[in-house]
Design a protein around this nucleic acid. Structure first.
Lengths: 232, 232
DNA sequence: CGGCAGTTTGACAAGTCTCAATGGGGGTGG
DNA sequence: CCACCCCCATTGAGACTTGTCAAACTGCCG
C-alpha cells in the first residue's frame, strides 16, 4: 500500500474528528513507514522511544531478560497503537507476527504534536489506559494462575479481540506460534501444547491446523480462567 | 490534615502550572477525600472507575483471582496517581499499606475535566505511560525470572522509588509485608523469606527488623536481577 | 513484660521445566 | 498440482524450582 494511504489509515483511526489541517500535516511530516515481513523486528534497539501504529497485520512487543529468555509483553492487531520504550531495565523490540504495515513516530515529537490538539491527547490517553488495563490483567495471570488458567484466559481474551462468531461457537485464527503464546504466558512451548491437549480433551476447544481455534464452550473456558468479577 | 489542604497538594503535584481558576475549582468540586488506616481498602468494589491521588502514605493495588489468590499489581507512594478500574476480569481494590490520605475522583468526570486544560491530559498521559512501563517491567519479572531475580529486581526498583543514600550504601524502609511482596512477585511468603535469607548470606543486603533494608552491593543486586539493558 | 502476628526455617509434594523423540502442517520447488 | 522436506507441534520421562504444611522464632505493640 502507498505511504499516503497508510498515513490516512492512521489519521482516520487515531486523529480526532475535525483535527486541523495543520496538525494533520505536521503529524504526516514526522511519520515514518515500514513494511515488515513475518518475523522482522523493525525497531530493535534503536535507542529512542517510538510510537507505532499497526496499519495492517499483527505484532508482538518482546522484552529480553538475561540468558536469552524472552517475555512477550503484548500483542497488537490492525488499528492498535504501541509505545516502544528504549531505556528500561529490559531491551524491548516490536516484532511482526504476520506481514505488517506500520506507521511510526519518534515518541517525543508525537507527544508534543498531540498536545496541540486537545482531543488527540485524550485519545492517546484512552488507549494508554486500555493498554495499562491489559497489562495489569496479564500481571494477574502471570503471577497467580496455573498453566491451564493462563491458557484459558488467554483464549478468552484473544477471542474478544480477534474472534468471530461461527454458528453458535467462537472461531479465530491466531497469528502467534506456541512459542509466542508461551513467552506471553510465562510458560514453555511444551506446557502450552500440553494444556491445549488438555482443553481439547475436556471438550472446551477444537484446533484446526496450527492457528485455527474454535471455542466450543466459552462459558466453560471462562470458568477455568480463574477470573473473579468485580462486585461479585 | 484538612481537606482543602489535601486538595492543594494534589493541585500542586498534578495540575499544570497556570491552570485556570475555573478548572481548578471544577476539579475541587468533584474531588472526594478519605483517610485510610493501614490495611483499609476504601475502594472495594464500588462499581465505578476511580482515579485516586496518594497525598500521603503508601498503597497497593490488588487484584483478586479465584480461590482467594491475590496479585498486587502495583505499589504507590505519596504523589502517585492511581487508576482503579471496576469492570475487568478480576476485582481490584486499593489498599493502604500505612495510614494514608487520598484524594479521589470518579474517573469519567476526572478525564472530562482534564480535557478542558490541554497540559492536564498530557500530565496524566505521562503518568499513565510511566505506570504502563512499570507494569511491563513487572510482567517480565513475573513471566521469566527466578524467585531470586524477582526479589533482586524488586529491591532495586524500590530503591529507585523510596531509597535514600546512607553512607555509601542505600537504605530504605519498606512499608509492605513479606506477603505483599510475595503477592506482588507471584511468590509465597516462604519463598520470599528464603530469598531474603539467601541475599543476606550472599552479602548483598542487610535487614533490620521487618521493614528496614540496606543494599550493601547495588551493582551485585542488579547483576542478579536478570536485566538486559537496551542497545547492549 | 507478655502475647501475637509476622517471619524464618525445615521437610515433603506438586507443577512446570528440561531433554528427547515422534508426528504433522504447510510452504517450496519441481 | 503434487510431493517432499523442514519446522513446528505434540507426547513422554525425569529433574528441579517453588508451593504446601508444620513448627520455632522474633520483632512489635499494648
Amino acid at each position: 500500500m502507498a505511504f499516503p494511504e497508510l498515513f490516512e489509515r492512521f489519521a482516520v483511526e487515531v486523529l480526532p474528528l475535525g483535527v486541523s489541517d495543520g496538525t494533520h500535516l505536521r503529524f504526516q511530516s514526522v511519520a515514518r513507514f515500514v513494511t515488515a515481513r513475518a518475523g522482522d523486528a523493525p525497531f530493535r534497539g534503536n535507542g529512542k522511544d517510538q510510537i507505532a501504529f499497526v496499519a495492517s497485520g499483527s505484532t508482538k512487543l518482546v522484552a529480553q531478560a538475561s540468558q536469552g529468555r524472552e517475555q512477550v509483553v503484548a500483542f497488537h492487531f490492525a488499528g492498535d497503537l504501541v509505545s516502544i520504550p528504549s531505556s528500561t531495565a529490559h531491551a524491548y523490540s516490536l516484532c511482526a507476527l504476520e506481514d505488517c504495515e506500520l506507521v511510526y513516530f519518534p515518541a517525543d515529537k508525537f507527544l508534543a504534536l498531540a498536545q496541540e490538539e486537545s482531543g488527540m491527547v485524550a485519545e492517546v490517553l484512552t488507549r494508554a489506559l486500555r493498554a495499562l488495563e491489559r497489562c495489569r490483567e496479564k500481571t494477574v495471570a502471570l503471577g497467580r494462575k496455573t498453566a491451564q488458567e493462563k491458557l484459558a484466559s488467554f483464549l478468552v481474551t484473544m477471542n474478544d479481540r480477534v474472534g468471530a462468531v461461527e454458528g453458535n461457537q467462537q472461531e479465530m485464527s491466531l497469528p502467534m506460534s506456541r512459542k509466542d503464546i508461551g513467552d506471553s504466558l510465562g510458560l514453555t512451548i511444551e506446557t502450552v501444547s500440553r494444556q491445549f491437549s488438555e482443553l481439547r480433551s475436556l471438550g472446551l476447544i477444537e484446533t484446526q491446523g496450527r492457528s485455527g481455534i474454535r471455542l466450543l464452550d466459552l462459558e466453560g473456558l471462562k470458568a477455568r480462567a480463574g477470573h473473579v468479577l468485580a462486585a461479585a
